[in-house]
Write a protein that binds this DNA or RNA. Structure first.
Lengths: 225, 225
DNA sequence: ATGGCTGTTATACGACTGCATAATTGCCCG
DNA sequence: CGGGCAATTATGCAGTCGTATAACAGCCAT
């Protein structure tokens, strides 16, 4: 009675790559880079370790692909938040901020994933360039929304840049601690503080869009697999 | 010609523990948790791996000690920033913020160290409690400084809490991106933006304390070993 | 000076890591 | 319905991980 060879079904290259990337992200998010071993990744993706080499050549390349997928996904979600809202500049800015300050963006696993990649980002010039691109893209979206506001006098570009940096920082900071210490903040508190702070920095009122206070609905989805 | 046994000198328990903790932090900061192996730690501390077990029982315990030392050190530096300044509330707040937004606090290795520990913090309730304590201590310092400002009408406690959360978030966010993408910001830009933003959130002026704009001095020290 | 305590080093072990290569088998095409 | 290619699995290997234990040696007490 020899141990039987594991049965399997063939799948498309796209599916396999996606499954491996998703498994990698999930493991890094939960246990850090050291938890994302080739064996653990393969097990979660439902395959054997050899496939990683087959589709990505090396674990390192899979890691890079997973990071690329991460930053691309984060960019998309910003645009998604603007899809359903109207044309009022203040409302659009408020929607953008609110989307960044509640689940699934605010999520302990998302921060874990981000932190897990930090060292690789710092040591790999290629990944660092991707990070910078992603950061600037997000900030530029923010700056464009800010520029669209009606604030009487026209705003110089240099001031717009500083405002975007500041607003981005508020959102980042709230996202960070809100994700790690989620129990320390009440429902909707992050969104309310974020809208009030950005409004104060820009000299406008953003808190009169009550539709952005999160409703007490059921558990939300996560952006992570 | 047998390989000779390595010569050594005895040292105090305190020195050895400090050296091992410093080596651990340096390695985590530079290469993440996976770089902090017992052999690498011992090599950097100038001893052999056995000493880790001798002084800390296990690598895990050393890791915890290193994290404790980190958060304790970060708490202290906040108070240090307030040591040299006068009694003017606005000046004290500005000094506190400025100290958090320039080296040695703003430093790629510091962020790396912080991120390297994130997963252990999330999975270890003991470390999570330490993180929360440290975060709240910093935020309470901030809130106290804010409460000390002279802003006409008295401020309700609940509003003070929200203001402290928001100001803390700005500082965190600027610290984060300023450390990772230091080349994207000009000298003193972070401090200037931080002071302006916090001032806007609180409705006061903090940018008229020019002594907090970093002078163009030589390379600064780091908080890391 | 010299025993002896203990701080320190040396060595060994099992588990796990990423990777390379060989062996299989599911499935498309004829 | 069966040949054959490629997707997938299985196996093996050298290196490194953390830890346990034994051997050594620096330094204090006498």
């Amino acid at each position: 009675m020899q141990p039987e060879r594991r049965p399997y079904i063939r799948d498309s290259e796209e599916n396999r790559r996606e499954a491996l990337i998703a498994a990698t992200q999930a493991l890094v998010a939960e246990g850090g880079p050291q938890a994302a071993t080739v064996r653990a990744i393969a097990a979660r993706a439902g395959v054997t370790p050899g496939l990683i080499r087959h589709y990505f050549g090396s674990k390192d390349e899979l890691t890079r692909a997973a990071y690329t997928a991460l930053v691309d996904g984060m960019t998309d979600k910003g645009a998604d938040a603007l899809a359903g809202v109207g044309a009022d500049p203040g409302e659009r800015l408020a929607a953008f901020i609110a989307a960044s300050l509640r689940p699934p963006v605010v999520d302990a696993r998302a921060v874990g994933l981000w932190a897990g990649y930090l060292h690789q980002v710092q040591s790999d010039p290629d990944l660092l360039a991707q990070h910078e691109l992603s950061y600037l893209r997000y900030r530029d979206q923010l700056q464009e929304l800010i520029a669209g506001l009606d604030r009487g006098a026209p705003i110089p570009d240099e001031q717009l840049r500083r405002e975007a940096i500041a607003c981005n920082a508020v959102i980042d900071g709230l996202w960070l601690e809100g994700s790690i210490l989620s129990h320390s903040f009440q429902q909707g508190e992050l969104v309310r503080i974020g809208l009030a702070s950005v409004g104060a920095i820009l000299g406008v009122t953003l808190t009169n869009y009550p539709m952005f206070i999160p409703e007490l609905s059921g558990p939300s989805a996560t952006i992570l697999p």
